[in-house]
Amino acid sequence: MTSLDTNEVITARKAYYAGLAGEADKGRSVWFPIAVLALLLALPALQFTGNYNYLIHLVLFTASYVVMASGWNILGGFAGYISLGHNVFFAIGGYFAGMIFARYGISTIILAPLAGLVAAVFGYVIGLITLRVRGPSFIISSLALVMIFKILFDNWDFVGGSNGLSLPANDLPVQWAKLPYYYAFVVMAAFTVWASYRIRHSKFGLGLRAISKDEIKSESAGINTRFYKVLAFAISAFFVGMAGAVWGEYLTYIRPNIFLIILVSVNMVLMCILGGKGTVAGPVIGAILLVVFNEFFVATLGASEINIFATGMIMMLCLMFFPLGIVGTLARLKKLPRILNWD
């Protein structure tokens, strides 16, 4: 028979629960993101030494996905509501800013915050409707949303229907032409990641995480879950809409099959899963990996069908063997380097 000393049992119980919960290292490496940002801001100086347009494009492309994936993560990662329809907000931002740019010549970079707000308003209203359901119903409603918007945009003559609209290109010399968009996306990405960090560590973020764990209990604990969720949806739509705004001008056209293809949604989701859903650094790492991987794949194999196959395959393998993503897995093994630990 085990010895049964009261104090011993109580102490042991504490240690047992602490072991189950796992403890967190709270140290931060603030220098790291600042260094990365400084490096990215200085990167275009390379253009003085040769043609680095492709590199600029890659960083810009990655930054745009950092904005979108981190935005998606606020709803999908923090609150646990998986949306497969976030490209709708990408389209709303893109079309809103693109149309004003086409008609009045106001740069989409200036319009981006406004486009984000418009997307957020749509997000708020759509959230009011679709966030009444959870689980599979929510995911399905988000898919239906894309289908509805695709049909609407395809048939809306004012915005050019399925052919879309061409937007004027800027008249900067070719080695500088990408830079306004480059800086816009890098700044947006930095802002998004910062916002995501602040949200993660706010009372609001705590509420969202509680919702993702157990919504009913959160509600009985006094969290206004409905407002929290809808707000998360709106904020998440804001970032995705902002990215969409500048993306149209960068490509010089807006067209439903640029914004409203399923691959855009999938990329956001996959980046978060790959990097670590619900973490701050996860979407960033996921975006970098997936963009690099995509470039490699397109460069070697070309065909978009194989690209779809490969994306699906990675997502499956990731979900099956690596569901916590890079950041989540490392954190669990207690091997997460401090520069990536922002949770």
């Binding site: 028979m1 085990t2 049964l4 049992v9 119980r13 047992y16």
Partner: peptide
């Protein structure tokens, strides 16, 4: 049963 094991 406590702490995952039989105490008594």
């Amino acid at each position: 049963l406590d702490l995952g094991r039989t105490l008594f």
